[in-house]
Write a protein that binds this DNA or RNA. Structure first.
Lengths: 239, 239
DNA sequence: TCTTGAATTTAGCCTCACCTAATCTTATAT
DNA sequence: ATATAAGATTAGGTGAGGCTAAATTCAAGA
């Protein structure tokens, strides 16, 4: 008789956990450049390094990463496409949760993480439609296109800004809920302009002033979590 | 060190496939009454009867079903609650897909089936909010309350209606896409009133007339897929 | 009552995606 | 140049949830 084993391979993505690996490798490549180590990926996914070694080998089989023992993994073109597909889903879902379902920043990440494995491409594109095809999510992160291209990112952490510089908030790191809250409460959100009053090298505190002449002193962790752009540069497609 | 094994047991439902079994048992109980056989559940889930036997034993361990060898399984109170929780999710998600995302009837079921395992209770309730706390989905099926109660269902297939009876469409079976389309195209949807002109016993054809005096002849399969109510009876909470 | 076929269960396997413990490699510091 | 520690890999499990094939049980008709 046969119970229709694993024949859904077509329309379904690589098994859901494969996507988690690809996304982790992609994120690490973006922030640290170069190959992703088993240790870092393991940390990001809260699993053991040993499991990552195994999976890297399998991902290589599948043609999704280039992997050299003891050297870490980098995404192949196919792997990158797949990762970006997941990132697109994730960011669109986050946008929906925040804008239509009244989630706040803390709750969003976890829910999106689960949902992105369950939704189809069709769902994703209809959601994009409903949201008006946004090109950035509410954190300010760019949303990859359905074709797998992603706006180049020329932002840098506020901690690296120069005194006197006029900058625009482009995004805030969404790892730490408390920071998100802090920023959210003060309406320090993507899109706002700030003037850098002082960057104190001794303790890493950055003093900024917003357009209503409100002044904020941000400690180093906060200053590293807020990303800014110094001028409007709009285009560029890159990996 | 420890990699945070399975400690999410709290907020997560019983493993996703457990939910599939419970829903299958529940649906079979609703339509056929009595205990669900391994064979029927196996057919519904497209797995082997042997697997169902195993799982029934485990579900019993977990206190979700009452199971007697060779006798099938029935839901315990906890099992029923859990099943209804899934059904609620499913029907709310279907409603959302149809009303906000422009899905048509065919596509909805499959997508909802996957999503219902990924969403949290929090998501479900916010979605209910967004949808205006509907008590029926677009097929006309009642949506269980968050507390696990479900409106009693006094509808019957059109094929069992009597000549001359005035009835209201309560729901249409969502198994067959072609039928859904047929009904959808003619706007024969839940809520509409019909008058039964004739029930032909010889071939099972039912002739009905809608409020615009439009007349339809529905063959037996269609007449068995359309459920109707003969009067407005509104309340009742039952399993 | 007996036979027989359908439904069910049992027994024994398999794959996935994890784990731990033990064994390499590699890079770094003396 | 070498010792050592950090990081990576291998070897050998585990549990969930499937499967097939071979019993077993039940129910129904002769």
């Amino acid at each position: 008789m046969g119970y229709e084993m694993n024949d859904l391979a077509e329309s379904r993505s690589p098994s859901s956990s494969v996507g988690d690996y690809l996304k982790a490798v992609w994120e690490l490549a973006v922030t640290s450049g170069g190959a992703a180590s088993t240790k870092d990926v393991a940390a990001r996914l809260s699993i053991s390094p040993a499991s990552v070694s195994n999976m890297f080998a399998r991902l290589q089989e599948m043609g999704l990463v280039r992997y050299e023992r003891y050297r870490g993994a980098t995404l192949t073109e196919r792997g990158r496409k797949e990762a970006l597909r997941l990132v697109r889903r994730h960011r669109l879902i986050e946008t929906f949760l925040l804008e239509h379902l009244g989630y706040d920043w803390q709750e969003v990440h976890e829910e999106a993480e689960r949902l992105e494995h369950a939704v189809s491409d069709g769902f994703t594109e209809r959601l994009a439609e409903l949201l008006g095809h946004p090109d950035h999510d509410p954190h300010g992160d760019p949303i990859p296109s359905a074709e797998g291209t992603l706006e180049a990112d020329d932002s840098f952490p506020l901690s690296q800004a120069a005194t006197g510089q006029r900058v625009r908030i482009s995004k805030v790191r969404d790892e730490d809920a408390a920071m998100l809250d802090y920023f959210g409460d003060r309406n320090l959100v993507p899109g706002r302009w700030l003037t850098v009053r002082e960057v104190r090298t001794v303790d890493g505190v950055v003093i900024v002033e917003d357009e209503e002449a409100e002044v904020y002193a941000l400690g180093e962790p906060l200053a590293r979590s807020m990303f800014v752009r110094s001028e409007t540069s709009d285009l560029g497609e890159g990996n």
